[in-house]
Each structure stands twice: as C-alpha cells, then as structure tokens.
Measured scan of single mutants.
Amino acid sequence: EVHFESHGEEQAMRVVKMLKKRNLTVEVKVENNKWIITAK
C-alpha cells in the first residue's frame, strides 16, 4: 500500500494517473487542504 500527500490538485492528478497505469486501486481524499492518495 502506498500513501502520497500532495498540496495541489494538479500534482495529485498526475500521481493518480501514474498509479492507475500500474493497475493499482487508487483512493483520493482531501483533508486539511492536503490531497491524500492511497494506492493498493
């Protein structure tokens, strides 16, 4: 499981795309203006 924190939507979306290319399940949450990305 991979956790990634991002402060910007643009950066977060880039990471999500990259993770999805690896056929991982990606969950995105926004907490306290931080984008929290979890990949399994």
Rank of each mutant, 00 (worst) to 15 (best):
N32M: 04
L19T: 01
N32D: 11
I37G: 00
E1A: 11
K34R: 11
K21D: 14
M18P: 02
I37H: 00
M13K: 10
F4E: 03
R22G: 13
E5L: 11
E1Q: 08
E31C: 06
L19H: 02
N33M: 06
S6Y: 15
L24K: 03
T38N: 04
N32W: 04
K29C: 14
N23H: 13
E31D: 06
I37K: 00
E9D: 03
V26E: 00
T25Q: 12
V30S: 04
K29P: 00
M18G: 08
K34L: 10
V2T: 07
E9W: 15
L24R: 03
L19M: 03
E27F: 11
N33W: 03
R22W: 15
N33K: 03
E9G: 08
K21E: 14
K29A: 05
E31Y: 06
E1P: 09
N23D: 08
W35E: 00
K17W: 14
K17I: 15
F4L: 06
T38M: 08
E9S: 06
M13H: 05
T25E: 12
R14H: 08
E27Y: 09
H3L: 12
E27W: 07
K21M: 11
H7L: 11
K17C: 15
M13T: 04
E1H: 13
K17R: 13
Q11P: 05
H3P: 03
S6H: 05
N32S: 03
E10S: 09
L24F: 14
A12D: 01
V28L: 06
V30Q: 09
R22Q: 12
E31A: 06
N33P: 02
A12L: 11
F4S: 03
I37N: 00
M18H: 12
K17S: 11
F4K: 04
V2D: 04
T25Y: 11
R22E: 06
V16S: 03
H7K: 09
G8R: 13
L19V: 02
V2G: 05
R22H: 14
G8W: 14
R14M: 08
A12V: 06
Q11Y: 09
Q11T: 08
V16C: 15
E31V: 12
R14C: 15
K40D: 03
K20T: 07
K40S: 11
E27T: 13
M18A: 12
M18E: 13
K17Q: 11
E27P: 00
M18D: 11
K40T: 11
M13G: 03
K29V: 10
W35M: 02
V15Q: 02
N33I: 03
T38A: 04
I36W: 04
L24T: 01
V2I: 13
E1D: 11
S6N: 04
K34D: 03
E10H: 07
R22S: 10
E9Y: 15
Q11W: 12
K21C: 15
A12E: 01
R22L: 15
V16I: 14
L24M: 12
T38S: 07
T38I: 12
H7F: 13
V30M: 09
A39W: 13
V28E: 00
T38C: 12
I36M: 04
A39N: 01
V16R: 02
R22M: 14
V26H: 00
N32Y: 04
L24S: 01
L19E: 04
W35D: 01
R22I: 14
N23F: 15
V28M: 05
